[in-house]
């Protein structure tokens, strides 16, 4: 954002990011999971692919020179969350004997997310908002397919994190929160 939204702005983003970093909620995710089934491993690997993409998006955006210091700080915090998500998911897949989905190349992500078309901080925030919304929906939309209750808990944690990212970015861009409840499916 080249101009700060009046109702939140950079200071608001700093506060939101600081609260998240201080909460310390993410390190233990997935610590006590039972052995997931084959379907669960497939779902976990799909989630892992989403986390790889999110990490790449924030990392490449951070290196783009388009972000102001305040937004860069928040992007770095969110990237850290996605890295912790990746690590939690990878650990469960590994413990289940599954094969981990690998991250794609940076050039693949640049093409897949049309990163070369981004020319401003607002463009980056808009993309990040869409990705966070998609990630939240991907988690909530797959919970019912999980057979392991521990994984249901993990996915609930993951979707809540993504929803916080989405809401923070939405506020930063000055986008109204929809009046209709059940924001994610």
């Amino acid at each position: 954002m080249t101009t700060e939204p009046a109702h939140l702005g950079r200071r608001g983003l700093f506060i939101a990011a600081g609260s998240l970093a201080g909460a310390g909620l993410f390190a233990s995710a997935g610590a006590a999971l039972a052995q997931p089934g084959d379907g669960d491993v497939g779902i976990l690997n799909g989630a892992l692919a989403i986390e790889h993409e999110g990490i790449a998006a924030y990392r490449l955006a951070a290196a783009s020179g388009l972000l102001s210091a305040g937004t860069l700080k928040v992007a770095t915090v969110f990237m850290g969350h996605h890295q912790q998500h990746r690590d939690a998911l990878a650990r469960v897949v590994r413990e289940a004997g599954g094969t981990l989905v690998e991250a794609r190349s940076d050039s693949d992500y640049v093409e897949a997310l049309a990163l070369a078309t981004l020319t401003s901080e607002a463009d980056v925030v808009a993309l990040a908002t869409r990705l966070e919304q998609g990630a939240t929906n991907a988690y909530t939309g797959q919970v019912a397919a999980l057979s392991d209750k521990g994984l249901v808990h993990l996915f609930t944690q993951l979707s809540a994190d993504e929803a916080v990212h989405w809401a923070t970015l939405n506020n930063a861009a000055g986008t109204e929160i929809p009046a209709q409840a059940f924001l994610f499916g």
Partner: peptide
């Protein structure tokens, strides 16, 4: 589509 499918899909590019 953007909200529910966009975590994994795009119209023009293969993603997840």
């Amino acid at each position: 589509y953007d909200g529910r499918c966009g975590g994994c899909h795009s119209l023009d590019v293969n993603r997840t």
